[in-house]
Amino acid sequence: SDEELKKRIEELVRRGNKDEARKLAENANSDEARKWWEKLEQL
């Protein structure tokens, strides 16, 4: 689900694993996940 995906992306970003988070968001084929990633990346 998008919610689970967003949690995983956020967790990866928090751990400093941005590349992994980006790949996850891009491969998810989910606009919501991509937007979430872009938002987190700004922080």
Rank of each mutant, 00 (worst) to 15 (best):
S1L: 15
S1W: 15
S1V: 13
S1N: 12
D2W: 15
D2I: 15
E3G: 07
E3N: 09
L5C: 03
L5K: 00
L5R: 01
L5Q: 00
L5F: 06
K6N: 05
K6C: 12
K6L: 15
K7N: 11
K7I: 07
K7E: 05
K7M: 11
R8L: 13
I9E: 00
I9T: 00
E10L: 14
E10C: 13
E10Q: 07
E10I: 10
E11F: 05
E11P: 00
E11T: 04
L12Q: 02
L12D: 00
L12A: 07
V13C: 14
V13H: 07
V13A: 03
V13K: 01
R14T: 07
R15Y: 06
R15G: 12
G16W: 01
N17R: 13
N17W: 13
N17M: 15
N17S: 08
K18F: 15
K18V: 15
D19Q: 07
D19T: 06
D19N: 05
E20I: 04
E20Y: 02
E20Q: 06
E20N: 00
A21T: 00
A21P: 00
A21F: 02
A21E: 01
R22K: 13
K23P: 01
L24R: 00
L24N: 02
L24I: 06
L24Q: 02
L24A: 03
A25V: 15
A25Y: 06
E26L: 14
A28N: 04
A28F: 15
A28W: 13
A28H: 05
N29E: 11
N29W: 09
N29A: 11
N29I: 10
N29R: 07
N29L: 14
S30A: 04
S30G: 05
S30M: 06
S30P: 03
D31A: 12
D31Q: 10
D31W: 07
E32N: 06
E32M: 10
E32V: 10
A33N: 03
A33I: 15
A33F: 15
A33G: 05
A33S: 04
R34I: 13
R34S: 04
R34K: 10
R34D: 04
K35C: 08
W37F: 15
W37V: 14
E38S: 08
E38K: 08
K39S: 12
K39M: 14
K39A: 13
K39L: 14
K39C: 11
L40S: 03
L40Q: 05
E41D: 11
E41S: 14
E41T: 15
Q42N: 09
L43M: 13
L43I: 12
L43Q: 12
